[in-house]
Design a protein around this nucleic acid. Structure first.
Lengths: 227, 227
DNA sequence: CATTTATGACTGACTAGTCAGTCAATGTCA
DNA sequence: TGACATTGACTGACTAGTCAGTCATAAATG
């Protein structure tokens, strides 16, 4: 049993390596291997936490999925709780990076937002990232640190960005409703609802998020004209 | 210990009785007491599940909060899981009743929806009911039965009602954007976001839900005019 | 071979669910 | 009506099992 498990774990590690496309050669120095393991643990934990929630997730399952012994987890994380918090941070950081690297505002505000919405659709709705959002909603109240972090890094920035766009749209006359700048939430709300809808009700009533967002933008900017 | 505990439970039951406003007289037959206890358990469970989530909630805590022994819970519910499911049903049923008893559409559609939004604000946002919505979002994926029930009883009905209102608004010329009828979600989205916002971010950035909903309605119906 | 890294068997704390026993409420009978 | 019998709602100590976190041991590394 022990033997078999060991072998399986090794095989898995190699597979992961191959997938990652490293040079076929000697594979790694210590730091690299350690980082790879950490990544594997993070990925496995993400999967487990998303499907079971924090409390119901077993570290044994994370370890097995990551192809690692349970003790190894404790070489990278203090305990289950801080693992969860760091996990959220780790996954969110690249998102923030992307938000910061948004293209400068050229073209109409409507086009900008439409592009943004398109990316959001592709990269969030119906993906692991979307599930992460739901997970944060679910566990946030019990993990103030997570809720705080998410607010600071994602929500407040996203809101500020949206507000700027809205103000630009108002200045340019693309947006009529001036008070909208007070509540960027209104602009984002349908997208968030789409995220939640997908994971709760998709099988009852599939939602064409793309189309819904377009209708919403028409509402804000006025019906689209083929200029 | 046993004596003391018994007394406490009895006292509690009587208090509840008084509140319920039954005839002051003989206090209870067996069936009544049983129903009262069930209610106490449901209330306690609601509180615990909301604050800790399903997996992290201890039946011992529910029992203590309800002023009941753990075994008693099992006289009313098969197990923890079905207790959770029945709990959600029990709490949601009165909401459905209210939805069904909506006033017939007189007056402008805008006023109707504004009234509806007002009630929603008062009775859901920032209340236990709002927390219940968050709980359903949180646990839904792990309790398909709950998600199904919630969809069938609340979401689909609410959506149908909203769609009808929107179509009425379009017919009357109050609403310009005809395609809105395809996505009642757009109308409801900011309200849902407000619910979630309250429980996650209220302390970082309090949200004036009332005002936000008004802005949103202005967006849909056009700026309010003092006719 | 000394040191760093990884392992997984083990421990102890914790909890869902059970069940033998208690006792207040109800029923029965003289 | 009062004495006694029956019921079944209720209790809480207990069982069987789970799981986060530890640590002695083993493998890998340089």
């Amino acid at each position: 049993m022990t033997k078999k498990f060991s072998k399986a774990a090794t095989a898995k590690a190699e597979t992961r390596n191959a997938e990652a496309g490293d040079e076929a050669a000697p594979v790694s120095n210590r730091a690299t291997r350690a980082a790879e393991r950490r990544d594997a643990i993070v990925a496995a934990a993400m999967e487990e936490f998303i499907t079971r929630g924090f409390a119901a997730t077993r570290l044994d399952d994370i370890a097995r999925r990551a192809g690692v012994a349970k003790g190894t987890i404790y070489l990278h994380f203090k305990d289950k709780e801080s693992m969860f918090e760091e996990l959220v941070r780790t996954v969110i950081v690249p998102v923030v990076a992307k938000l910061n690297a948004l293209p400068p505002p050229t073209g109409s505000v409507r086009d900008l937002i439409e592009t943004f919405a398109g990316n959001f659709l592709k990269e969030v709705i119906g993906t692991r990232r979307g599930d992460l959002v739901r997970l944060i909603v679910a566990e946030g109240p019990r993990f103030p640190a997570v809720a705080d972090f998410y607010y600071r890094e994602v929500v407040s920035r996203g809101m500020a960005g949206m507000r700027a766009l809205i103000e630009l749209g108002i200045a340019r006359g693309e947006i009529q409703q001036a008070k909208l700048a007070r509540y960027p939430q209104i602009l984002i709300a349908p997208a968030m609802i789409a995220v939640i809808w997908q994971s709760l009700f998709a099988r009852h009533a599939p939602l064409d998020a793309q189309d819904m967002l377009r209708v919403h933008l028409d509402l804000i900017f006025g019906e689209r004209r083929t200029t």
